[in-house]
Design a protein around this nucleic acid. Sequence first.
DNA 1: CTTCTAACA
DNA 2: TGTTAGCA
Length: 128
Amino acid sequence: MSEKEFRRSMAVLPMGTVMLLTSLTARQIRYYDDCGLVVSKRTDSNRRLYSLDNVDRILEVKDYIKEGMNIEQIKRVYEKQKHRRDNKLSNSRKGVSDTRVREYLHDDIMKAGGFNVNNNPQFKQGHL
DNA sequence: CTTCTAACA
DNA sequence: TGTTAGCA
C-alpha cells in the first residue's frame, strides 16, 4: 500500500470536519454510519473518526440518496461490490482475466445503481 | 465546547 | 430527518 493510500485510509477526522466536508448534518452522517454504509473508527472516548476515503463514501451515499435510492438499495450496491472484490481476488489467483468481471460490474451497477428511466433526463417521460 | 445515545414531534 | 435531553 502506497503512503498516499495509507493517509487516505487514516481515520482522523472528527464529526465536525466531516459535516463541513459533506454539508450533511451529524444526524445524517451518524445514520449512514449506523446503517453500515461507512466503516468509521472510534476514539477511546467513543467519538467517531473518519478517513478521507470515508468522506468519499459518505459523499457517494449522499448522491445515491439524492437519486432517490433508499438505504437498503445503497447497501446492496456496496454489498455487491464487496462480492465482486472477493471474486476478483479468487479469479486472479486462478489466473482468470478480470475483463469479464468488469463486464458484470458495469451491468450490475446500471441495475443496482439505479439510472432508472424515471429520473434520468436522457429519457424524457411522457412519450414512451 | 464537541460529540454520543436514545427517544419523540 | 429535526431536535432535544442528559452524559462524557
